[in-house]
Computed example of a mutant assay.
Amino acid sequence: MLQTDNAPNHRIHGERFMIPSDTDGVQLQLINKRPVDPVEYSAERTLVMIHGATFPSASLFDVAVAGASFMDVLARHGYDVWAVDVRGYGGSTRLPEMSQPPDDNPPLIPARTAVRDLAAAVDFVRRKRGVGRVNLLGMSWGATVAGALAAEAGERFGKLVLVAPLWLSGTPLRFDSGGPIGAYRIVSPRAFEAAWRAAAPEQERAGLIPEGWFDAWAEATLATDAASSAAGTIRAPSGAVLDVRQHWTAGNPLYDPSAIANPVLLVCAEWDVDVRFDMAQDLFTRLTGARYKRLVEIGRATHMVLMEKNRGQAFDAVIQFLDEHTVPAG
């Protein structure tokens, strides 16, 4: 097993960029972590990531606990790592409707809009680094976005990593509590802790998140929305909830997995009640066009596996997959 948290190989540099979207007046934030040591940029060593439905990239991928964030670990391993915030999230442009009461407007930013933002980020990175392709990683709802873009424009990508990928469900998902859907949701990171731990068996909840990690995560999460943080909350567009209702619990997938030809890694978690293992397994069986594919389940972990005690296992699985230069035997 790779010791990703304990054996860094490179000093790293961090930077943030604001880039144009395909909509006038809407800019997208890109976080970049890369080795400080001189490197030759390559498609194989470039990775673009996209967050999930509620928390932006800085919250999901770049909270440094135990000495490193997920982005830090990847950069120390020699990867040029980029993470985009879709419009309405994190450091990207907040739409005017997000300054109005949530019930005054329809749900903002469904997955099809996020696909356009991810495409803009990918094309920016390809131009800036002079590479024809990049690797792609999506988390939860972001895996929906990444999968849809890979199905449409797979030639832009090398490998595809889907962490806790949202997919079809024959039963309701707790992400959609029913009732009217406003333009955006008001989310308290502190209140979210109970739901996070509740996915684990009762006797495992206390140790799920190592001491100090949740506080670091909550502080970093609140910092992504200065206009709302004084109230101890962040704002998150509700388009992803509409996606669940119109697609994932309605038997109407947003994209065709068989159209993805890239190598694909699916990472799921034993105690994930938001994207259950049967959902990930169904998606896995439908990836019939993938050059090769792999499904990894992390034990004793929930939907937030990238910020939990067993996160190193997920990091190892991702890095091992990205490092491979040949198709595995068999």
Rank of each mutant, 00 (worst) to 15 (best):
161 V>I: 15
41 Y>I: 06
80 D>F: 10
116 R>I: 04
235 R>G: 05
108 L>Y: 12
243 D>W: 06
257 P>M: 03
128 K>G: 02
86 V>E: 14
287 L>W: 13
10 H>W: 12
233 T>W: 00
253 P>A: 05
158 G>C: 07
263 P>R: 13
150 A>L: 14
21 S>G: 12
74 L>T: 02
146 A>P: 04
259 A>S: 14
179 G>D: 05
134 V>E: 00
206 A>I: 12
182 G>I: 08
220 A>E: 09
82 W>I: 08
282 D>A: 13
165 P>M: 03
25 G>V: 06
194 A>N: 04
287 L>Y: 11
124 F>V: 02
62 D>V: 09
324 E>R: 15
244 V>F: 11
231 A>Y: 02
60 L>S: 11
1 M>I: 05
66 A>F: 06
151 A>D: 02
276 R>F: 10
185 R>W: 04
249 T>P: 11
315 F>T: 00
154 G>K: 00
181 I>D: 03
169 S>Y: 13
55 F>L: 13
246 Q>G: 10
252 N>F: 00
317 A>M: 11
205 R>K: 04
158 G>P: 07
123 D>A: 07
167 W>N: 11
72 D>N: 14
49 M>I: 09
225 D>S: 08
35 P>Q: 09
132 G>H: 06
223 A>V: 01
141 W>K: 09
324 E>M: 00
193 E>S: 06
102 P>C: 10
10 H>T: 02
174 R>Q: 13
82 W>M: 03
42 S>E: 08
84 V>L: 11
3 Q>Y: 13
78 G>R: 06
234 I>E: 03
120 A>V: 03
137 L>R: 10
291 R>K: 12
175 F>C: 03
328 P>K: 01
123 D>M: 08
225 D>T: 07
134 V>H: 02
300 R>L: 01
18 M>K: 07
321 F>Q: 01
300 R>K: 13
21 S>F: 13
187 V>W: 01
60 L>K: 10
312 G>E: 15
180 P>V: 15
142 G>D: 05
